[in-house]
């Protein structure tokens, strides 16, 4: 059951336990226990809204920053990743395979602030060899949710 529960919550974390219990055909208690277990095991680490940042704040900018870094002896990339994680501007930090090493997303209140953050806070860190900043121009889909799509249902309103 937890697998299905997780799939439903990933799509919409605001479904009530009553709704989840109906959909999964189990009791509300079982749903509550399932969620608790997923949380306790650290499988679910949090819940957050998927926000259309441009709508919420005209000036908001999101950037994806790719870093090339030199791993520290014995400690790999973790140290640097942990340092970067501490900045509250940083939304996510991933270690990647391939040409770049770390990928970071940042949401800031202006282009300038994001650019300054990169040059003054990230680029100067020990171990960072280079940074490449990509500003997000438009969001189409995030976490399986589609942005700004007025009517994607092409079906007629009523049909037999």
């Amino acid at each position: 059951m937890n697998k299905k529960l997780l799939a439903l919550l990933k799509q919409n974390a605001r479904l009530t336990n009553a709704e989840l219990s109906a959909m999964l055909g189990v009791s509300e208690q079982e749903v509550a226990a399932g969620i608790k277990q997923l949380e306790d095991e650290g499988i679910i680490i949090g819940y957050s809204a998927i926000v259309n940042e441009e709508k919420a704040d005209d000036n908001a900018v999101t950037a994806i920053i790719e870093l090339k870094v030199t791993p520290f002896k014995d400690r790999g990339f973790d140290d640097l990743a942990h340092t970067i994680m501490q900045y509250e501007e940083v939304d996510s930090v991933f270690l990647l395979s391939g040409a770049n090493d770390l990928s970071i997303t940042i949401t800031g209140t202006s282009l300038r602030k994001v650019a300054l953050f990169v040059s003054e806070r990230l680029a100067v860190l020990d171990g960072v060899l280079s940074t490449t900043t990509h500003f997000v121009l438009r969001r189409y889909k995030e976490k399986n949710h589609v942005f700004n799509e007025e009517h994607s249902d092409e079906r007629s309103l009523v049909s037999p």
Binding site: R155, S156, L157, V158, S159
Partner: peptide, 26 residues
């Protein structure tokens, strides 16, 4: 004309309708 058709004509006149009326998969 099918009663569904009649109802469709009404539904179409109303702006911003959300439908639970289709007989085909999403």
């Amino acid at each position: 004309p099918s009663g569904i058709r009649k109802f469709f004509d009404i539904a179409q006149q109303v702006e911003g309708v959300i439908s639970l009326s289709v007989g085909e998969p999403d």
